[in-house]
Design a protein around this nucleic acid. Structure first.
Lengths: 208, 208, 208, 208
DNA sequence: AATGAATGAGGGTTCATTCAT
DNA sequence: CATGAATGAACCCTCATTCAT
């Protein structure tokens, strides 16, 4: 995965990281609230406690902020999923707990995930591909667990393929972020998780 | 469902419909290509063959155009799904063919569905809810088929609930629009449909 | 000579001409006083009695204004020189009176000519070449008179060539605009003209 | 001639000279390429190998750099002309060789001379007058040679005056810098020099 | 009813200059 | 002393919306 580099005029890399995190923190909230296009660079700067000039020392373009934000969110999801994966137990057990954890992450990062869906198209092709690539990487984490389960025979999969199943898991997690406004009228996140888990497990054979 | 009313200065309702369809046709392509925010009212007017003044006789706000477009797309999906539903045969048979048709619709309306995901947040709460409500209505069409299948015993559903399953179907259709860029490298839409169909059917019991 | 076209959003060509003349009139004074770079588009608009939006309906870029101004000035010089040229009399007589008139034009348009020398480099290559081409055209007017004089034997020219002599005339006219601040301490424009006329005539042989 | 003083925070005068020469060297190329206004202080500092802070220890204002550059260029011309002047031989001989040398200098310093014409107006009145004064001084070098020629009777001048002739020489040298883009299509610098020399000598009487 | 010229607030971005470290 | 991060006024330009014709 190529990692897009956002140019800066500031030399000290530690400072750059620190300041960019401030920019990200300020922007995530702002973009969630009013979207990328309706947020102004001045608002971003103010929320970050920056002067407008300072902001532009750490980015080149307003779009850079969006990229930083999208990348940060995906990084967060990826790390959380990685941490949720346990190597102990069968692949099936691993998958179950990973799904549960992942759905919880989706719940707690609802707004952030929604943000990516809505604003990713505002990124330049270049940056967009970098962000999408990270999504694929997260998906592959699930694919690997499924493959492990197939190898240790705890998972029996005819159709769909491991890859597609992994994508399905990803999307059913995201689904909660889109449809929570409606679903949460009748079910809780815990119920959602358990029902969807059953739904998914239906395709990998009964427990041995 | 409240239907949001977009005010117009023109009296003749037929004319209004005709003109608005022109506006929608022009805008859909424009919004898909460059997004709502990057499209200008001048561009919309020009593409529709209107003067900017004429455009504003049929809308009040640029956002009205987005609403018209989102509503039009959803209307299209709803009608297509309705047409795909057959009352003949068991609920299960009905569901199978409805899912197949629906996935095809999602494939052919990919760009349009994506557009809604991306721009719906730019609508005012009011308009947004109207659009979302139509999505729920489409979902209910599936829910009804599932309920019929349960009643005629062709479908046996423990978990998830009929409602959640309907939502899952909806989202797995949409999924193709988000992830086609990646999935289509290894599978065709036909394969996608069949695999996902199996995935879904796994939760409604073996064929009797 | 390619004539660079400055795009406009306004359709009525008469209006465009009228408004652009207003822009030119406002800008010439402004640019002479403070130069192109130190003049802001808002100042230009205000001086022209325009809103900033109106200004940008008639141009695309600030640089367009500079082009309009440079072209206008050169057009003025060209027309004035053309009017100063008489076909009656010998080529020599024609040249003498053309030079006198031209030097007067340079005197009265001092600031404008200076402006072109100073700001032409701020034009894009394209626009710059168009402006320079007009300068060559004016020079050719003198060259043609000289050639006529050579044909009717009223002018006898060894060196420099007719072309170079024409350029010299041009530049000695411009010279007054650069060095007036110093020369005018000791001589008047009338003296300047007569002395330079003799200087130039020295190279085209004694009167027959 | 008042010599404008550019203030500095640094005490050691040798160091100041050395550093300023670095600034000048960096800026000349920069200004020629993109003009004074489009060059940033950061670019100047970088090209000179300075930090921006260091740059500002040797100047007070960006405009100071322009003054340093203009002054440096004029100083170069003046020194070159002075070196080209020989006291041996008649005034006429001296003048001929001085003109030839001067025209060569103009050719080789084309870009620099052009720069002064274009940017001098960006200097404050104060600095501008200092720069212009040096131009007058160079002109006076020619005036003095002409006067010597008149005294030793190798030059016979009716009109124009020695002073105006000196100015003409100056400007005909500069002319090559403005019009080289066009003239060099048909003549070389050597031809230019000889033709212009004849043109100038036409006004100082036949060789005795 | 139709046109399109006009408005001007507000957008993203730059850059000379300062000053804490 | 030397550095370079920080400031923020000011720049050019856009565009949704209005309204005189």
């Amino acid at each position: 995965m190529r990692k897009k580099v956002v140019p800066t005029q500031v030399k000290n890399p530690e400072l750059v990281n620190k300041r960019r995190q401030q920019i990200i923190d300020a922007s995530v909230r702002l973009f969630i609230k009013q979207g990328f296009h309706k947020s102004t660079t001045r608002q971003i700067a103010r929320k970050a406690g920056f002067s407008i000039g300072k902001l532009y020392e750490y980015i080149t373009t307003k779009e850079d902020v969006l990229y930083l934000v999208c990348d940060y969110i995906h990084r967060g999801v990826e790390e959380a999923v990685k941490q949720a994966i346990t190597d102990s137990g069968t692949g099936r057990e691993s998958l179950e707990s990973a799904i549960r954890e992942y759905f919880r992450i989706c719940d707690s990062m609802s707004d952030d995930i929604l943000l990516i869906y809505q604003e990713i198209k505002s990124l330049a092709r270049d940056a967009m591909h970098t962000v999408l690539a990270r999504d694929v990487q997260i998906t592959e984490l699930f694919e690997q667990i499924i493959d492990r389960g197939i190898r240790d025979r705890s998972i029996k999969l005819n159709v769909p393929s491991a890859r597609l199943l992994a994508h399905n898991i990803m999307v059913l997690g995201h689904m909660w972020t889109f449809r929570r406004w409606y679903l949460s009228r009748t079910i809780t996140i815990d119920q959602y998780i358990e029902e969807q888990l059953q739904f998914i497990l239906n395709s990998i054979g009964r427990k041995p």
